[in-house]
């Protein structure tokens, strides 16, 4: 029987069952959150670092979760912010991905892996906010309304941001 968010929170909020509740949360959401943060970075190790920090923040603050938004929306927002924060730290340290691929190609005869790498390279060129919007929509296939709840941004602004991101990536892919 699948675990509900209510069960997770009830277990977590009781001192004796807190760890059990948190383990249920991990089992339920770890893969989805991993694949979300993985889109922000090139390497698994980076994604793992972001994920561990995300779960640490969740562990420390879940007792304050009021349920205004759904649990996954709340977790996703933390993960997304943690990923952006990680990217900003990397930029400050002058760290840039070293496995960037060249642009200028089309999809004919190209492996899915190579296409993914090319897209990741194009994604790196976006400003952080556009990158976040693009990942939410393109990879995570999230409705604009849910994106609005996570980012505290209007649906119209998100659509405009996504449009800019898509145009820029398309331009890089066709250059």
């Amino acid at each position: 029987m699948p675990t509900t968010d209510g069960e997770i929170l009830e277990l977590f909020n009781h001192p004796d069952t807190r760890e059990k509740g948190f383990r249920l949360l991990l089992q339920t959401y770890q893969e989805r959150l991993y694949y979300h943060v993985r889109r922000y970075v090139h390497h698994h190790e980076d994604a793992n670092d972001i994920l561990q920090n995300t779960f640490l923040k969740i562990w420390k603050s879940l007792h304050g979760f009021r349920g205004d938004a759904g649990l996954y929306t709340w977790l996703y927002r933390i993960a997304s912010n943690e990923a952006l924060s990680y990217l900003q730290q990397q930029k400050k340290r002058g760290i840039v991905p070293i496995d960037s691929v060249q642009t200028g190609s089309n999809t004919d005869g190209e492996s899915a892996e190579k296409m993914a790498a090319r897209l990741q390279y194009a994604l790196d060129s976006l400003p952080d906010k556009q990158k976040q919007v693009f990942i939410m929509r393109y990879y995570d296939e999230m409705p604009y309304e849910q994106m609005a709840a996570i980012t505290d941004t209007s649906v119209g602004a998100l659509k405009a941001s996504y449009h800019h991101a898509v145009k820029k990536i398309e331009q890089i892919l066709t250059a």
């Binding site: 991993y34 694949y35 993985r38 889109r39 698994h44 089309n106 999809t107 899915a112 296409m115 993914a116 897209l119 393109y138 990879y139 449009h163 898509v166 145009k167 990536i169 398309e170 892919l173 066709t174």
Partner: peptide, 17 residues
Amino acid sequence: AAPILAAYKATESLPAV
């Protein structure tokens, strides 16, 4: 708006873990 990106989406797969 972005036909190449649309084609990419069709071949998209999850990153390796």
